[in-house]
Amino acid sequence: MRVERILVNAGKTLAVLLLLVWSLFPIVFIITSSFKPGREIFAVPPQWFFAPTFDHYITLWQRWAVFFHGLLNSTIVTIGAAALAVMASTCAGYVYSRYSSRWLGASLLSLIAIRLIPPIVVTLPLFPIVNNLGLADTHFILSVLYATFFVSLGTVLMRTFIDQIPRELDEAASMDGATLPVVLWRIIMPLAAPGIIAVAVFVVVFAWNEFLFAFIFTSTKAKTAPLVISEMIGSIEGVDWGVLFAASTIQLLPVLIFVMLMNRYLVAGLTAGATKG
């Protein structure tokens, strides 16, 4: 019995460790490599101790100024997409939570069904339309597209959260003199904050790293950082790995920090509904 338990525990620990290595290794590799002198990045055996250098960051700054412009674009697009998705999902989630009819049920189903279509199917016919509307290469179109892609998931998620907010609160607020937008803003949104954070994290991670839409709908003005990174990887002059890892590190950090900060709410958010509040 005892031995068995020790073995089980050891097994669990090992599994967790493996999972940690599996998920952390690429991140650690990218970050450490960005500070390694070029020759040591792929040295076999790997160099665990090295004199850190900022050369790659300096080169990145000098040779790939466009990357930093891309970061600015990514930031604008990501914030825009998150704000749009959160607003739309909250409003739609509220409707699905508080009202019911056959048509609403059907529309929720179609929302989810639409999500199953591969993005590329949507993007190609959109390309000429976006061009004709003069929206190509704008932050606006990317924000809208990214938000659109998460509104279905976001709506379902927000509905689950809003379902847990007693309807009496809306009623109390409307008796207290609140109009519907005020109810949403002052009552629903603060109470559904974990859900909003969950939706925001999804959208932020997606929008920050998204490639396909950005590739199709931007040229120069709204070009996002992942596009610049892809140019570094596929560079027909051979890859400058150190600079690529420096760029990847810069690209990675904001989202990593954001997700870590929001982690607490996120876990609470994703498990909501499992137990009644």
Binding site: H69, L72, I76, T138, A222, E231
Partner: peptide
């Protein structure tokens, strides 16, 4: 075209002052 885009453009600053623009798609 885009409210947010405008902000980015201001940040980046207009880098040209020629009257014609030739757009090139390349590596």
């Amino acid at each position: 075209g885009t409210v947010a885009g405008g902000i980015a453009l201001m940040a980046a600053g207009p880098s040209f002052a020629q009257s014609k623009t030739l757009q090139v798609l390349s590596h």
